[in-house]
Computed example of a mutant assay.
Amino acid sequence: MTTTGPVRADDPGPSYSYLAGLQAELTAPGQPPPGADDWSCRPSVAHPNPVVLLHGLSNDTITWQTLSPILARTGYCVFTTTYGTGALGPIGAIARVEDSAAQIAGFVDRVMAATGASKVDVVSHSIGGAVAFYYLSRVGGVSRIGHFVALAAPLHGSTISGLAALQPLVASTGSGAAAVRQCGPCQLSPGSPFLQVLDPDPGIAPDIAFTLIVTRYDEISTPYTTGLLDGPNVHDIVLQDQCPTDFTEHNELPSDPVAVHEVLNALDPAHATPSTCTVVLPVLGPPPIQTH
Rank of each mutant, 00 (worst) to 15 (best):
M1P: 10
M1H: 00
M1G: 14
R8V: 13
D10Y: 10
D11L: 07
S15N: 02
Y18Q: 10
T27A: 10
G30A: 12
Q31G: 08
G35P: 06
A36I: 04
D37R: 06
W39I: 13
R42A: 15
H55F: 07
D60M: 02
T61Q: 06
I62L: 11
T63R: 03
Q65D: 10
T85K: 12
G86E: 10
P90Q: 14
I91W: 00
G92N: 09
R96L: 14
A101G: 13
A102D: 11
D109C: 09
V111A: 04
A114G: 08
A132Y: 03
Y135H: 13
S137Y: 00
S137R: 15
G140E: 08
V142R: 15
I145R: 07
H147K: 15
L151Y: 04
L155N: 13
G157Y: 10
A164C: 08
Q167Y: 02
Q167I: 15
L169C: 02
L169A: 13
A171Y: 01
S175W: 03
A178P: 03
V180Q: 05
P185G: 10
Q196E: 07
Q196F: 04
I204H: 02
A205E: 03
P206T: 04
I208R: 03
A209E: 04
R216D: 05
S221A: 15
Y224C: 08
T225D: 07
G227Q: 05
V234G: 00
V234H: 00
Q240L: 14
T245R: 15
E249K: 11
H250M: 15
V258Y: 01
A259K: 04
L267W: 09
P269G: 14
T276P: 02
T278S: 14
Q290H: 11
Q290W: 00
H292M: 05
H292E: 07
H292S: 13
